[in-house]
Design a protein around this nucleic acid. Structure first.
Lengths: 159, 159
DNA sequence: GTCGAATAGCTGCCGAAGCAGAAACTGTCG
DNA sequence: CGACAGTTTCTGCTTCGGCAGCTATTCGAC
């Protein structure tokens, strides 16, 4: 039995978590894009490279789930990055349906090169935050995504 | 002099605020869309109606800024909603360049009809949160957006 | 008042994401 | 073995957001 945080009569867009999430993310991307553009990347391309660098995804299917992105669109992004020599495709031998992705040396070097500017931007954005506040924010966001990933939220919606 | 929250060597996508914001928002929208589809709305259309209902935006320019949406795209969304009789356009008399937007009675009734399901969904998504946790999350998100709206973040990025 | 600059909104165009379906492959069950 | 369901990736089609340019209107300097 969850708490009634919001009520129908008093729900307002501007104070809702959903609106604030969108706004914060959108503003962050707007600040990030010019920085990445100096390295010749769109935001989406850079995110793909970051995930490959961190070993979070070895193939397109997992990458789609992680990034909540369309598989068709991802194919085309990988095409671009492969053409630039930053990513390589290789058919898996265990399961020949699957294509293993990894960063090339050039790809790793390029994405590492973007990190100082990105980290500086993030730290500036969080300039007014104490360490505790950032830890709280991170924890609460992880908690929220955890709830949303399990089907529990959708299941409770009345017909 | 902001705190060095993140460092170049240890920055990882999965634990960064940016990634978590995107993921949380995206999951929330995925849950919301089927609910709104039963009323015949896309997420974007519904957000526009909500803002008009709450009196947050009286014309297209303000609405664009609020929603961080393109003015051209917004014109077409308003077209659809006007054609369905949910929104009305009216040239302002004070400034005839400006078009005042408002919900029609039908529009208000329709968007109000979506509220119970939306509120139920949000409460389910926040099921594991205490009142304090939701208050903290909301406050921290507002704080973050505030920082990002003032140009301070971008200004500090090194060349 | 007049002229140039700025603002509000709309239209055409382009690129990227979403959807559906095809092709290649795997594993299972009879 | 062979039919069939399920995966993984890729390819066309459609839709939608972002950009540039246009018109109408207003503001400000002179």
């Amino acid at each position: 039995m969850p708490i009634q945080h919001y009520r129908t009569e008093t729900y307002r867009a501007r104070t809702s978590v959903g609106y604030l999430l969108k706004r914060a993310h959108s503003l962050l991307v707007d600040h990030l894009e010019p920085v990445l553009a100096t390295s010749g990347f769109t935001f989406t391309q850079w995110v793909v490279l970051m995930h490959l660098r961190d070993g979070l995804a070895l193939n397109a299917t997992v990458l789609c789930a992680q990034l909540r992105h369309d598989s068709g669109a991802l194919t085309r992004i990988i095409d671009q990055l492969e053409k630039r020599g930053l990513v390589s495709r290789e058919r898996s031998r265990q399961d020949r349906r699957s294509v293993r992705l990894h960063l090339t040396a050039a790809g790793r070097q390029t994405v590492d090169g973007t990190m100082p500017a990105v980290v500086a931007l993030m730290n500036a954005a969080l300039g007014g935050f104490s360490r505790t506040e950032l830890a709280d924010l991170t924890r609460l966001l992880i908690k929220l995504t955890g709830t949303l990933e399990n089907g529990s939220a959708a299941a409770r919606v009345p017909a």
